[in-house]
Simulated scan of single mutants.
Amino acid sequence: MSTTQDSTTTTQTPLGASDADAPTRDELFHVLRNRRRRYAIHHLKRANEPVDVGDLATQVAAWENDVPTEAVTSKQRRRVYNALQQTHVPELDDTGLVETERREVELTERAADLDVYLELVDGRDIPWSEYYLGVGALGAAVTAVTALNVGPFAAIPDVGAAAFLAVAMLVSACANYYYQGANRLGEREKPPELRGE
């Protein structure tokens, strides 16, 4: 009897999922690839309570058409409502990310797993993992030249280099925490892709 596990089953489950019927990464990426579903999830996270499908459709239509909710036309709302009612909400329900009761939709606890898959990297930015790799390499170089007393670094005490590295890491971690928190669904009024920051 073999005790090895199939690697595809262990890599397919999302982080933090413990039960067998949790959505796989493929299912989560499929859900998140659609902008309308991302907008719906964003609004549901901000509401933090059950939302009427009609109200959800109005907000999603407002974001899609870049207008205030009061300016959404009945045609715009109806188009989004039909898509949400027939396709998007049932798909979110099937993956266990929302619960529906009559005309109301609410996020489940599983929706918290979505933040892991939504790190947005602007075209002008570098991923945080690469940034920390650079800070680590700089720290190793500063430590080496300070410890070896090379050139002008001979005058810097080892504790000074350590303090510089600690402050650099702390400032970087604070910036990362703020930036990533701002890019999560439900954290600000508009979804991340509409902010233009």
Rank of each mutant, 00 (worst) to 15 (best):
T73P: 03
R110W: 04
L44K: 00
M1S: 10
G196P: 07
A140T: 10
A175P: 00
E197D: 15
R46W: 00
N183F: 04
N149I: 04
L28F: 03
L138N: 11
Y177L: 12
G186F: 07
C174E: 14
D6Y: 04
L107C: 05
V105G: 01
E187F: 10
L170S: 12
D125C: 03
A22P: 01
R36V: 12
D125R: 13
V89F: 00
D6E: 13
A154S: 15
T73L: 02
V145N: 07
A141M: 14
V121T: 15
V142Y: 02
T146Q: 04
T10L: 06
T10A: 13
S172E: 03
N82G: 11
A47P: 06
L170Q: 13
Y178K: 12
G160D: 12
N176I: 08
Y117F: 15
H30T: 11
D94K: 14
N34D: 15
K45Y: 09
A47I: 04
H43Q: 10
L32F: 11
A140I: 15
V31E: 05
A166L: 11
M1R: 12
V98N: 00
A83F: 04
T95R: 02
L84H: 06
E193N: 10
L56R: 02
L194M: 09
R184F: 02
I41A: 01
T58E: 15
G186V: 08
A163N: 11
Y179D: 04
D122Y: 14
D158M: 08
A20T: 11
A175H: 12
P157Y: 14
D122L: 14
R37S: 06
V150A: 15
A47H: 10
V51P: 00
E109N: 09
E197K: 13
E70W: 11
G139V: 04
T143W: 00
D55S: 12
G181D: 14
T73V: 01
Y179M: 07
R103M: 12
L44H: 02
I126N: 09
M1D: 11
Q5W: 04
R25H: 09
G186Y: 00
H43W: 09
